[in-house]
């Protein structure tokens, strides 16, 4: 990070990174996401909360076109990242996904070495000119994933041999290795114990300085702990979106209030 970037970041603070307009998602005949409009800010953690099946994961996965892999899934409306429509036919999903990293619910390291897990993204995108550069990227990414100190002596050990929490941080390191601008996290702590969860949450907070982080979570406490903005989804609708503090203390919509006070969901 040089000084130029630091200045840019200050300017970017309140910039809109992702902008969704009238987004509809269908699974076959099922209307899973209904008319969602949302602006997601840069350098911010945005949490999507809501009861199971409310469409928050579906919406998250349309932000990097992971839904493309599901044949029956159809997305309508506009999703703009940096003002560019990501569903434009000129946009290659491969390029998009390098820019929009993703961390999944269950830690899913490749059954390869820790080093290869992190190096895979940079390798396929040709981001490193030589081995030394690749080593550097791997170390930097593992440091950002807050796991470097734990694995630096066994980079050739299989990634699947780590504990659940370590695996998830490895997956975060793998996601940041391609230098994305946005990091999507689909319930990243749901398979982790409280201690590993705390570590990952701390990491998410650190990642905010460089990325726009969007996190789907079941846990309202987690949303309250890590996010600055919160969006509440219910039955495919975006019910309420605003400052996390406001959503949790003074929600406008009665459905939001019912959910956070535990009456629905």
């Amino acid at each position: 990070m040089n000084d130029m970037r630091l200045i840019e970041r200050a300017v970017d603070m309140n910039d809109i990174k992702i902008s969704a307009r009238n987004v509809q998602v269908y699974y076959g005949a099922t209307h899973a996401i209904k008319d969602v409009n949302v602006d997601i800010a840069d350098k911010t953690v945005t949490a999507f909360i809501g009861p199971s099946g409310c469409g928050k994961s579906t919406f998250l996965r349309s932000l990097n076109r992971m839904n493309d892999t599901i044949d029956i899934c159809r997305v309508e409306g506009d999703i703009l990242i940096d003002g560019q429509d990501i569903y434009n036919p000129n946009i290659d999903p491969v390029q998009l996904r390098a820019k929009v990293g993703m961390v999944f619910q269950k830690p899913n390291p490749f059954p390869k070495s820790i080093y290869d897990n992190v190096a895979y993204g940079p390798k396929i995108h040709g981001l490193a000119k030589n081995k030394a550069e690749l080593d550097e990227i791997v170390e930097k990414s593992l440091r950002r994933g807050a796991i470097w100190d734990e694995v630096k002596d066994r980079l050739n050990a299989p990634g699947t041999g780590l504990s659940g929490g370590q695996q998830q941080r490895l997956c975060i390191a793998r996601a940041v290795a391609t230098e994305p601008e946005i990091l999507l996290m689909d319930e990243p702590c749901s398979a982790l114990d409280p201690i590993a969860t705390a570590q990952v949450e701390e990491l998410i907070d650190e990642l905010r300085s460089q990325y726009s982080v969007v996190i789907v979570t079941h846990s309202m406490q987690q949303a309250a702990r890590v996010s600055q903005k919160t969006a509440f989804f219910h039955l495919g609708n975006l019910v309420e979106y605003g400052e996390t503090g406001k959503i949790f203390t003074n929600p406008e919509d009665p459905r939001t209030e019912s959910y956070i006070s535990g009456r629905i969901g």
């Binding site: 990097n64 992971m66 892999t69 491969v94 390029q95 998009l96 996904r97 390098a98 990293g101 993703m102 961390v103 999944f104 269950k106 899913n108 390291p109 490749f110 059954p111 895979y120 993204g121 396929i124 995108h125 997956c171 793998r174 996601a175 290795a177 391609t178």
Partner: peptide
């Protein structure tokens, strides 16, 4: 999950 992991980092 392995396919998703690879797609997620931008593999074709």
């Amino acid at each position: 999950s392995i396919r998703e992991a690879a797609l997620g980092v931008g593999a074709s």
